[in-house]
Design a binder for these strands. Structure first.
Lengths: 227, 227
DNA sequence: CGTGTTATTGACTTCATTCAAATTAGGTGG
DNA sequence: CCACCTAATTTGAATGAAGTCAATAACACG
């Protein structure tokens, strides 16, 4: 079984920016106790073992949350895009880590211990509840993918899912590397690459030269593959 | 890829029993709007597409929640044992189904729409919040298992996990069939059986004649295998 | 225009699956 | 109590999908 963990290049220094005005649009919710920070590519938002108690929200960019096996095998349990909330934990310590995918800005809401949450702020509590239940539903879908779908089906499902979460439907600008995709879908980069090449050859998707975006050319065919 | 869905034998009629006195012990929580029902083996607690809005709690026995692919491939996203809460949904309709494993008694809490929850009852809301976050953590662990562990590691992890959730630590009375185990761990019954046989031969576990319970003989070895 | 990183592709291997048969357990009726 | 039946589980042999290892190709960046 393979080991894949990209070396974390946390060389860029990130800044903490106290928030004056609540963010605009979807970000306008969840205001009390917020601070926004810029994270560099692959920088840790929080690590396994860190004290939990904050929750995080992507303002711009994207992040991954990761579970690790002792020998380094990695499962990316979710990718988080703009607007997504993550970081919820049942334990006082984080049992998974979160890292920024590219450069991203992420809001942090402090002092959100589970016990005090519901009392402090009804709106906040309901949003977090909603977020955790949505996350649970996604996790269940993903278990089905991991446990029961073939390589090509996994890729088809992944692309459809991502395209639904991006504003522009047919062009997907991948914020993550092939390794990240592999570790999210429970496969290897070789198999990911082969599956993408296959879809490209069958003119179901188009992969431009720089390999970091994908265009869906035949959504119906992709849905058929998804099973 | 295989298809495995046991035919549901819902021949036994189950009864709805209005609750006079709150259940004892851990079941004493979450009282308002509760009714308890007895479910027969393989009987549906709720089906995919049913209107969501109730939550459920195992009083005795066990249940499984299941996601299905269009061709019948099945992923059991979780087994629920006595005390466990399940049935939470982000959508107004259930996107997964739940079935009783053996004969079980399950409490149902009605009219629990997500929006009203937090307001109606602070204690109830916090319990549900807690349950959903615990479920999310379990789901993340399970994604790691499904995506990155080998057959023998999956079985070792599964047995350790189950033994931790049962009162008696070394003897596990399996409430589920091999098919259920396979569909939970993302493998086939043949592979499940082979892995168990292997552990039995190596004297790490003992499988008695009736095959429905397992004794852990060497917990340390099991933990080593878990990786 | 080299250099390092990321992605693709090829050849071979392996682990889990498939298909099938054998075995065992448990329930039913004589 | 035992023979029979059915369903569940185990086991065997062959296949196949994805993995491993390794080489090549394509970018991105200074």
């Amino acid at each position: 079984m393979h080991i894949s963990r990209p070396d974390v290049a946390a060389d860029h220094v990130s800044q903490t920016v106290p928030l004056r005005h609540p963010p605009i649009g979807r970000g306008a919710l969840l205001s009390p106790g917020l601070s926004i920070r810029v994270f560099a590519k692959d920088e840790e938002v929080f690590a396994e073992g860190d004290r939990a108690g904050c929750i995080y929200r992507i303002v711009t960019g994207a992040a991954r949350t990761t579970r690790l096996l002792s020998d380094g095998r990695r499962q990316i349990t979710a990718f988080h895009l703009a607007g997504d909330i993550f970081g919820l934990e049942s334990d006082p310590e984080h049992r998974f880590c979160a890292e920024s995918l590219g450069t991203s800005t992420i809001g942090t809401y402090r002092r959100c211990s589970l016990d005090t949450l519901a009392m402090v702020d009804g709106l906040l509590a309901r949003q977090i509840m909603k977020a955790s239940i949505v996350a649970l539903g996604r996790a269940q879908d993903h278990m089905l993918l991991l446990g029961r779908q073939s390589a090509i089906e996994k890729i088809a499902t992944f692309l459809l899912d991502l395209s639904g979460r991006f504003p522009n439907d047919e062009q997907i600008d991948l914020p993550m590397s092939r390794i990240d995709i592999a570790d999210h879908l429970g496969m290897t980069i070789a198999t990911v690459s082969r599956a993408l090449t296959l879809l490209d050859r069958d003119e179901i998707i188009a992969i431009p030269a720089h390999r970091r975006s994908i265009t869906i050319r035949n959504r119906a065919a992709l849905k058929r593959l998804k099973a």
